[in-house]
Simulated scan of single mutants.
Amino acid sequence: MPTPHTVLCINVGSSSCKFTLYSVSGGAESVVAEGALDRIGASGGNLKIRDASGRALAEWEREFARPQVAVDAMFEEFGRLKLPRLDAVGHRIVHGGADHVAPEIVTPALIADLKKLIPFAPLHMPGGLEGIEAVAARHPKLPQVACFDTAFHRGMPERAERFPLPRNLFDAGVRRYGFHGISYEYIMHALGAGVPPRLIIAHLGNGASMAAVANGHPCDTTMGFTPAGGFMMGTRPGDLDPGVTLYLLNQKGYDAAQLDRLVNQKSGLLGVSGLSSDVKTLLDARPANAHAAMAIEMFCYQIRKSIGALAAALGGVDLLVFTGGIGEHAAAIRAQVCDGLEHLGLALDPRRNDSNEDTISIADSRSRVRVIPTNENLMVARHTVRLVFPAA
Rank of each mutant, 00 (worst) to 15 (best):
I40M: 04
G41T: 11
V7N: 00
L83I: 10
V317I: 15
S276W: 11
V337Y: 02
P350I: 12
T245Y: 12
R162D: 14
L246H: 05
G131F: 06
F64P: 05
S25D: 14
T235Y: 08
T222N: 11
E104F: 00
V12W: 06
A335N: 01
P196W: 00
L37P: 00
H291L: 15
I372N: 02
L240H: 10
G340A: 00
A137M: 00
A363F: 07
D358Y: 15
K115R: 15
V94F: 02
L314Q: 06
R261G: 07
E29V: 01
R176V: 11
L348E: 03
G243L: 13
T323H: 06
V31E: 15
D51T: 03
L319H: 05
L204E: 01
E76Y: 07
I200G: 04
E376Y: 02
L310N: 04
Q336T: 08
H203V: 04
N215F: 03
G268H: 09
R304C: 02
N46W: 13
F389V: 03
K280W: 02
L117D: 10
E328S: 04
L199P: 00
A212P: 05
V31S: 08
N289G: 07
T6C: 12
N215Q: 14
P373H: 02
A70M: 07
P84Y: 06
A136S: 12
T323S: 09
F64Q: 11
S30L: 06
M74P: 01
H343F: 15
R352M: 06
S365H: 00
P237K: 14
L86N: 12
M379H: 04
I132F: 07
L47G: 08
G13S: 03
P4C: 01
A190G: 00
E34M: 09
V279M: 14
G253Q: 04
G26S: 01
A98V: 14
L341E: 02
R366N: 05
P2S: 08
A295Y: 05
R138V: 09
G315T: 09
L114C: 08
V369F: 02
L275H: 10
L320G: 00
T281G: 05
D284S: 07
P164V: 14
L378T: 06
I40N: 03
A42H: 11
L110D: 03
D318F: 04
V380M: 11
I303S: 03
I182D: 01
Y184T: 09
P237Q: 13
L110F: 04
Y184S: 09
K305W: 08
G238S: 12
A58W: 05
G271F: 10
R175S: 08
G325K: 12
D51S: 00
H217V: 15
R286F: 07
Q251E: 15
N206D: 07
G131E: 07
L240C: 10
L86T: 09
I372D: 01
P126M: 05
F322H: 07
L270R: 13
K141D: 14
L21F: 08
V89G: 02
R159E: 14
P218M: 07
L199W: 02
L114P: 03
L129M: 12
E161L: 13
G96Q: 13
R304N: 12
S267E: 10
G127T: 06
P122M: 13
L165G: 07
G268L: 10
